[in-house]
Amino acid sequence: MEINKFEDVFEGKLAKNEMIEPKDWMPENYRKHLIRQISQHAHSEIIGMLPEGNWITRAPSLRAKVVLLAKVQDEGGHGLYLYTAAETLGVTRDELLNNLHTGKAKYSSIFNYPTLTWADIGAVGWLVDGAAIMNQVMLQRSSYGPYSRAMVRICKEESFHQRQGYEIMTHLAFGTNDQKEMAQDALNRWWYPTMMMFGPPDSESPNSENAVKWRIKRETNDQLRQRFVDQTVRQVEYLGLTVPDAHLKWNEAKNGYDFTEPNWVEFKNIISGNGPCNKERLAARNKAHDEGKWVREAAQVFAKKRSEVYEAA
């Protein structure tokens, strides 16, 4: 078959809403886009373990400690499925990790913000995981089979995390005055960074067009951001907290809220490495990886020794 024919088959599958599988032919830019998107997603899960892990040793109840441990472990698990899904596209985990550790690969910029109080653990679960779900629900129907299947499981776990985050916020918002203040402060600090998670405005989003065509993405950044605001305002009201946006206003005509855009200059800066925790996050990943080197080597050498013994027998 010529390239054209392969491409017809590929386009045909997309048109019929069928999955593309690892052994199917796919255009090179489709493969590249997927590797970039899936590995960025995997890196985000792994880096995301750090700000949340920051509070494991200080969780204020035994139940909270167990729930947070399990949550951070789930994020690691997501990283694992996603790296594996990316590997089906012909890259190795070593290459992907190397890109992360050298700063070549991106990850969700939200994790470059610090978790300063226990309320941040609530806010991250509620807002950040909430926004992540909104981004990810559509990926369960993405055209690439392994990615789509990984996302089904990830979305289930993320909705659980979101409820756990909201539960923390509920305890705080209906708790003592100090706790309520802590909750409001966390909301103030996480509101705009969370809105940035949907990416730059559609007018400035270079990767969106193909992504929509390939069913790797199904809605635009602005559509998702609007939906997030509309949904979250009600949850903020239930908690008796205030959205930190003086211009937030219901717009009957569009059946949604008008709201202040996040600060895109800050967003660009954080993406390019100037956020409050960029350096710490990468340093922590590099440290764990470097200090784990002798462990991985020992395991490999041991396995080799044992397989030689086995072969000799």
Partner: peptide
């Protein structure tokens, strides 16, 4: 629990 997120490999 200090190891969570900092293990030698995933």
């Amino acid at each position: 629990s200090e190891w969570t997120g900092h293990g030698p490999f995933l």
